[in-house]
Amino acid sequence: MKLDSTVSAVVTGGASGLGAATVRALAAKGVKVAIFDLQTEKGEALAAEIGGVFCEVNVTSDESVDAGLEKARAAHGQERVLVNCAGTGNAIKTASRSREDGAIKHFPLDAFNWVIQINLVGTFRCIAKSAAGMLTLDPADEFGERGAIVNTASVAAEDGQVGQAAYAASKGGVVGMTLPIARDLMNEGIRVNTILPGIFDTPLMKGAPDNVKDALAASVPFPKRFGQPVEYAALALTMIETSYFNGEDVRLDGGIRMAPR
């Protein structure tokens, strides 16, 4: 797909981190970008910076996603590109024993479901609604391409660590649905791919102690550093621009394989 001013895009979780880097990379190509996020101040500032539009969207809500798409399409027209970066996580063992008094507890199911609803169901909700809109578009080339979708999973989908049952399940679900969705949409010319980032320098990491960050960076085979959001954005754009890229799940992790903890 050729990325230029004739193309519009939606980026969920686009106000910061991997999403913000992708927003800037798309805008640098001339693409009209709508930012979906709950971080209003950051989202509006970034939208002003790139000449885009900010939509306050909660991906767990049909009504919120519908309203966001309506606002984005009113401003830019039907999107041909969707990049799903909205996500969250927690760290809770499936069952554990207190070191203080031996009391036994299990992973609260509402906390498990919260992660699944944002990372997995929220991603699918945005895919389904955006793809339905893409079906209304005329093909952009002689092969019938109408759109491209990029999702964000995690290396935890394959190397989930202690306490990551919910996170790994949600990201494993994103990986698992990539090929079936690509097959669902193949006759409509809509491609679907997923990136599995490793340890990235995102706002979540900035609050960690320096010794923890140093140890994490040292655990990466090469290069021994955190991934940079611009590297995620570069791969996302490659997936969008390369029309033979379809139905794939690609690790972007410096060769790391996560240890149990």
Rank of each mutant, 00 (worst) to 15 (best):
N119E: 11
E145V: 10
A169F: 06
A153F: 05
L196H: 04
L179W: 14
C85W: 01
Q117A: 15
A153T: 10
N193L: 05
V192E: 04
A128F: 07
N193W: 02
T123G: 07
A168E: 00
A86Q: 02
V83G: 02
K105N: 12
N187A: 13
T136W: 00
G89P: 01
G77P: 02
D110M: 09
D214F: 05
K93H: 13
C85K: 00
L135T: 14
P203Y: 08
D210W: 00
G176M: 06
D201C: 12
H76Y: 04
V121W: 04
A148L: 03
T178A: 09
Q161P: 01
D141W: 00
D184M: 10
L204C: 08
A95Q: 11
E158V: 10
L179A: 14
V115C: 05
M186V: 11
T152N: 07
G198I: 02
N84W: 04
N90S: 14
S154R: 02
P197V: 13
G207C: 05
T94P: 03
T136D: 13
V150M: 05
L109Q: 14
D159N: 10
R99Q: 12
Q164E: 09
A86L: 07
K213R: 15
T152S: 12
D159A: 09
P197W: 02
D184L: 12
P203M: 13
S130N: 11
V174T: 08
A166Q: 01
A153Y: 04
V81A: 01
A86G: 13
H106M: 15
Y167F: 15
A111C: 08
A132G: 14
L204Q: 11
P197D: 06
L137P: 03
A182M: 09
E158T: 09
D214I: 10
A91N: 13
T202W: 00
A217M: 12
A140N: 03
G160F: 04
I118W: 08
V212D: 04
A111K: 14
L137F: 01
F112I: 11
P108E: 12
Q164M: 14
L82S: 07
S98Q: 07
N211D: 13
A103E: 14
V175C: 13
V121G: 00
T88G: 08
V192D: 04
F143V: 14
Y167A: 02
A157P: 01
A218I: 10
V212L: 10
L82H: 00
A111F: 09
G144P: 03
M177N: 09
S154A: 14
F107A: 01
G144I: 03
T178S: 06
A111T: 07
G173P: 04
A157N: 05
